[in-house]
């Protein structure tokens, strides 16, 4: 079990002093420290043991910074700290953590996609309450799920568009997708999905198609086309969620969210996912609904119907289902059901 240490905020109103102390302790220039500590939370160390992480937090607290440490799975593909960072941390003399040199360039911990084509963005608060911040260059716009905008620069304008046609009315989602554009100057927009959980980003190259479970859409490039696709009665009826999937095609960024954590799975051959756990999958996969293990298990194991994917592609799986949450919460609801 390894830990990571993140600076989560300023404990003092004097941010400059905290940054100066940070710069001194980590032997970096004050400018660099200011840059590092502008966007928070920021992970500064990974691969620590519990004691060292604790000492880091205390040292940071003395500098006037709020810090926390949390479990961190080193090989997690998403966090992607550089390998060198882990090595440096391991060599830290445990007695004086604050004086230890930081990695030359601490990995931009909230996932960023600088090397990708498409918009600059970052994801904070993952995996519990992932929050998307997208930098819009001037004269560019972005499509966002209705009501998901949380923060934005004043230079950004909002337009509401009917997107996806009537189909989206039936998917249970708002039929409106808002388009936010940076008309003359660049700006940023912060997007908060409704469900607690994680966010995933995919850059669709022309011709690539992704299917999203109804409700998973968060935002996309205006050049990405969203359509609703009728799953057919058998697939739709048993998949629990809805009769429709959202089909995303075109070129550009696409973000979607989960309820719970997210697992990305490469499929080559066959893979089985509970219907309620499916978030998204690539077009190359054929999917078939089937009963899990016979009628007896249908009624007694709680598994019911599953989706069997076949072919080559990727599936995104969420670690919780809304159905299970509702079933758990239902017994505590005290609303009049007769109305």
């Amino acid at each position: 079990m390894t830990y990571k240490v993140s600076v989560t905020g300023y404990a003092t109103p004097n941010a400059a002093a905290a940054q100066a102390a940070f710069a001194q302790a980590f032997k970096i220039t004050p400018e660099k420290a200011a840059e590092l500590l502008t966007t928070l939370p920021r992970t500064i160390k990974v691969g620590l043991d519990a004691d060292t992480a604790e000492r880091y937090c205390q040292a940071l607290a003395k500098m006037g910074l709020n810090a926390e440490h949390s479990h961190h799975d080193a090989p997690a593909a998403k966090a992607a700290p550089s390998a060198s960072a882990t090595v440096t941390s391991a060599a830290v003399p445990a007695a004086k953590p604050a004086a230890a040199a930081p990695e030359a360039a601490p990995p931009p911990q909230p996932r960023a996609a600088a090397e990708q084509p498409g918009f600059q963005f970052r994801i904070d608060g993952a995996p519990d309450f992932a929050f998307l911040t997208v930098q819009l260059p001037a004269n560019h716009s972005i499509k966002v799920e209705a009501a998901a905008m949380a923060t934005m620069d004043t230079s950004i304008r909002m337009k509401t568009k009917l997107s996806g046609g009537l189909g989206r009315l039936v998917t249970g989602e708002s039929i409106f997708v808002n388009e936010f554009s940076a008309d003359t100057v660049a700006g940023e927009i912060g997007i908060a999905p409704g469900a607690p959980g994680d966010l995933a980003h995919v850059y669709l190259k022309g011709g690539e198609v992704l299917f999203l479970q109804n409700g998973a859409f968060v935002a996309c490039d205006p050049d990405v086309t969203l359509e609703t696709k009728w799953q057919g009665f058998t697939k739709g009826f048993f998949s629990g969620e809805s009769f429709f999937l959202i089909r995303a095609s075109g070129t550009g960024d696409l973000w979607f969210n989960t309820y719970g954590g997210m697992i990305e799975k490469e499929v080559d051959g066959e893979y089985v996912v509970d219907t309620g756990n499916i978030v998204a999958f690539t077009e190359g996969l054929d999917y078939k609904l089937e009963k899990f293990g016979g009628y007896k298990s249908l009624f007694f194991s709680g598994e019911g119907f599953v989706c069997r994917f076949r072919g080559k592609g990727r599936v995104w799986v969420q670690t919780r289902t809304s159905g299970a949450l509702l079933a758990w919460a239902e017994q505590y609801r005290r609303v009049g059901k007769e109305a």
Partner: peptide
């Protein structure tokens, strides 16, 4: 009113704000 955003707060001035990444209305 149809885009689901309604009214927003414009914060002006100089200083720090703290924002929560989820809202009860979103939930």
């Amino acid at each position: 009113f149809f885009g689901g955003e309604g009214l927003v707060t414009r914060v002006t001035g100089r200083g720090r704000i703290v924002v929560q990444t989820r809202s009860l209305t979103g939930l």
